[in-house]
Computed example of a mutant assay.
Amino acid sequence: MDKTTGKLSTPGDCNALFGLGTNVLVNLLVMTGLLKYVVGFRTSGPSGASCPPWG
């Protein structure tokens, strides 16, 4: 085997992917809750069509 090629993944890559996915999901839920209930942002109409997770 050629020594110049590296591994495709390392042991921490799975942990990093799980952490990133969890962070994105939590950020989306917090942002949606703040915009909908604190700021009073409407989720119907154009905003619901442009960002389906808010609906």
Rank of each mutant, 00 (worst) to 15 (best):
C14L: 14
A49G: 07
V38C: 15
G40A: 02
C51D: 12
K3V: 11
R42L: 08
L35A: 11
L25C: 13
W54V: 15
L29M: 13
P11A: 10
P53K: 09
P46N: 08
K3R: 09
W54C: 07
L35I: 03
G40Y: 06
D13P: 03
V24L: 06
T22N: 10
V30D: 11
S47G: 09
M1T: 05
L34G: 15
D2R: 06
T43P: 06
G6I: 02
S9M: 05
L8R: 04
V39H: 11
F18Y: 05
C51T: 12
W54H: 11
V26K: 05
M1H: 03
L25I: 06
P53E: 10
N23Y: 08
P53C: 09
D13W: 05
N15S: 10
P53D: 09
S9W: 05
P52Y: 02
Y37S: 11
N23C: 08
T32G: 11
M31L: 15
L29E: 14
V30L: 13
A16R: 02
K3N: 08
T22L: 14
V24W: 05
K3C: 08
S47L: 13
S47W: 13
L34V: 15
S44F: 07
L25H: 05
A16S: 08
L29Q: 15
G12A: 03
F18H: 05
T4P: 02
T10Y: 04
K36N: 03
V26R: 07
G33R: 10
L8M: 11
W54L: 12
V38L: 15
S50D: 08
A49W: 07
P11C: 02
V30A: 12
V38Y: 13
T5M: 01
P52G: 04
G45S: 11
R42S: 13
D13E: 13
G6W: 01
G55P: 03
L17Q: 00
L35K: 05
L29F: 15
L29H: 10
G40N: 08
L35F: 09
G55Y: 08
M31C: 14
T32P: 00
S44N: 10
G48N: 04
D13Q: 10
N15W: 04
G21K: 04
M1L: 07
K3Q: 08
R42Q: 05
L8A: 07
D13G: 01
Y37C: 10
T4H: 06
T5V: 03
R42M: 02
G45Y: 11
T32I: 15
S44G: 09
G21R: 03
S44D: 12
W54R: 12
Y37P: 04
C51G: 04
P11M: 02
V38D: 14
Y37D: 14
S47T: 14
G40T: 09
V39Q: 10
D2L: 02
V30H: 13
D13V: 00
Y37M: 07
D2M: 04
M1Q: 00
P46G: 02
T32Y: 11
S44V: 06
P53Q: 13
V24N: 06
Y37T: 12
S47P: 07
K36C: 00
V38A: 15
S9P: 00
V30F: 12
T10V: 00
L20C: 05
C51R: 07
K7G: 00
L35W: 01
G48T: 06
P53I: 07
G19K: 12
G21W: 06
V39F: 12
K3G: 10
L8W: 06
